[in-house]
Design a binder for these strands. Structure first.
Lengths: 227, 227, 227, 227
DNA sequence: GATGAATGAGGGTTCATTCAT
DNA sequence: GATGAATGAACCCTCATTCAT
């Protein structure tokens, strides 16, 4: 049951944290469960990561960086809207399938979970606004929300760019809102992975699914000439 | 800060609960905050609703029933795939915009929040399966997950039906999976509402947005003949 | 499930209280369970009995009075140590069998349960002394303990009297302590009823059992001449 | 008021728990009172003992084991019914006098306190049966009752064995029921200690009292030839 | 550096008692 | 007189965090 061994303690903690957070969600995951699995002392977590929240963030931010890098490279290696989209979603599907639980936590508990506020992007700068006037949001809370928002933002900003280029190239319908569209596409796919009815990915591989998604996105679900 | 007044206590509790749950999410919301806002004694919650979870469920299930009814009526009042879809999303957008936070909690905290399990629909019957072999899920926990799953299920089963009819009528592309497609569409739209960058709904009304969504869903985002 | 009907409310409450106290013990019994069974309002209990403790006391003191009366009459109707003892235990066994649970509650929860004190009988007067020097016992608590003590005391003072007469008549061994002996006998029999292994009373009747008890008490368990 | 000092925390908790449980009984004793007396944090109790019930059980089971061992050795060291009985009760009296309150709690609160059930020994196996048909007893509750039943059982099974040998040797009167008789004797003596009028043990020592008890048990209270 | 014993604020829940109707 | 909605103090328990070793 232990993840211990020759691996350095911080790696062991991260591995254990992934498992426990994935199994129980952020709130219900306990540090006791993590240290037991990682076979380290409780203080060690605080030495390396500061506290529970930062442990989770650390776990997630590292993965995200590598993922965003892969996304960028895959997209850059392709030419044309369609191929870029396919490349994007091939990486996307693999990653989200792999990090299903962790990314669900980001989506909600760390983002929407604190629904007391709303994020606005103004000229590339983010603002955290309170949704309920009577409630003041602490600076720390704002900072935390922004941190998780940035993670997802880094992912779909790439998609947004692809779509924006498509709009500018006259390939995508105008009037169109690249941000709204990319979010719809992004989260639609993400949720299909979070919430699978049948494990599509076990029948098809990421590339095949990606092709279908992009085809339907571009040309619609409707058989031509029927409506 | 108080919501008190002439309203009956159960109504005051429900109103306060909505606000607190919306602001903090299910786990972080405390009954103390709710009773303070509702200006009632702690026992009163237990008298009316039994416990925290049932309070939340009560809050949500009533709304859902009315919503599902409206969805059905709106869809039934229309003929043809496109009009049915438009009617569906017009209702959908209004409702999700209004119940943004609460439905996010259902989507993530009550469902995915406990990522330890996965739901499978087999012949109309639901099964809650553990995702991690070492973890046993208690019967009560299963029942709870199923309760919230049923809420969303009642909503998108209607969409699924529309799409299925579209497939059978040869209007939607085959091979197509009505369930997967409806989930993608359903959650794509839901997440766009949960996570709005610009408040689209403040610029356009639900009907207008609905039209765009359905158009793009059916005919794609791509300008014809460009790719 | 209701005990309601034509009976006056205080009778209905008493009947319900007996059942609930017997089933759950004093602490775990709730007034809610009692009023539900009695089909009366909660305030009614307070109107008739004052509070939970007085309800229990009332329930028990009434029965005890009748029981003690029967004990006295039965004993007075007989002549001689042996017959008086037999008469005593015939009544005793019937009553304790019938009021098993309620009298267990008196024995412990209302008496020994508050072990912070000890009762001393000095010249017919009772004193409640603290067992732990640092603890002060409130006057109300003292009074309550004494009330329940009196119930049992009224029962075994009759037995004590019989034994005392036996000692004085030279029938019972001296040196002998009538009080200690009566308690031993009294509680030995009581506990055998509280804690039955086999339901003796279902095989034999109260009279038969009473005969055996008295015989063994007087002449011992040992076969004569063996030791 | 504090029991703190150099003693390890679990010892301090146990010492405080004994005092508080003894003073108030199981139900009325609060963990807050225990931690205050022990001068430890609330979590410490849960670290060492799990919960309130296990704390009490732990407190009691350790003592019982030592006691039962002493009982066995004392009895085995003697030959003959009478000497075995004397040895048994000498140990018994000392122990029950010392652990008066705690063992009262076992006898009544943990066992009979929940009067909803009755224990039956069938071929050495125990069954917990509901006394009231409408009441279902949870598996956990059954297990708990059995745990405390086993404590007393271990004590009087030794006495039962002595009596059984006496019956088989023809020393004790037949027909006789070793189980019923041992319970009567056991609890009669126990209750005399629980409920002392005069502190017999302060006038006589355990050995002297034991001799009287056994003599009266074997040969009765009656002066020979008087009845 | 690493540990894990110890903490205690804070959570959900229960239930005897009150009092306006 | 009778009611039962409402209360809130008090209970058991959890777990992120600290700090002496």
């Amino acid at each position: 049951m232990k993840v211990s061994g020759a691996a350095p303690k911080d790696q062991r903690i991260l591995a254990a944290a992934e498992k426990i957070f994935s199994m129980y969600g952020y709130e219900k995951a306990t540090l006791d469960a993590i240290i037991k699995l990682a076979d380290v002392g409780k203080g060690t977590i605080y030495k390396y990561f500061g506290n529970k929240e930062q442990l989770f963030y650390h776990l997630v931010v590292g993965r995200n960086e590598a993922f965003v890098k892969r996304l960028r490279q895959a997209v850059d290696a392709q030419e044309g809207l369609k191929d870029k989209l396919c490349a994007y979603f091939e990486e996307f599907i693999s990653f989200y399938y792999e990090n299903n639980s962790l990314w669900q936590i980001i989506c909600f508990e760390m983002l929407g979970g604190s629904n007391a506020c709303r994020i606005q992007k103004v000229d590339g700068d983010y603002q955290v606004l309170p949704r309920y006037s009577q409630l003041e949001i602490k600076a720390e809370a704002k900072e935390q929300i922004l941190r998780y928002y940035s993670i997802l933002d880094a992912e779909y900003v790439i998609l947004e760019k692809i779509l924006l280029d498509g709009i500018n190239a006259g390939i995508l319908k105008a009037p169109n809102d690249a941000e709204a569209t990319s979010k719809y596409l992004f989260f639609g796919v993400a949720m299909s992975i979070f919430n699978p009815t049948q494990n599509l990915i076990e029948k098809f591989n990421a590339k095949e699914i990606s092709l279908i998604i992009v085809d339907r996105f571009l040309h619609g679900e409707c058989v031509p000439e029927t409506i």
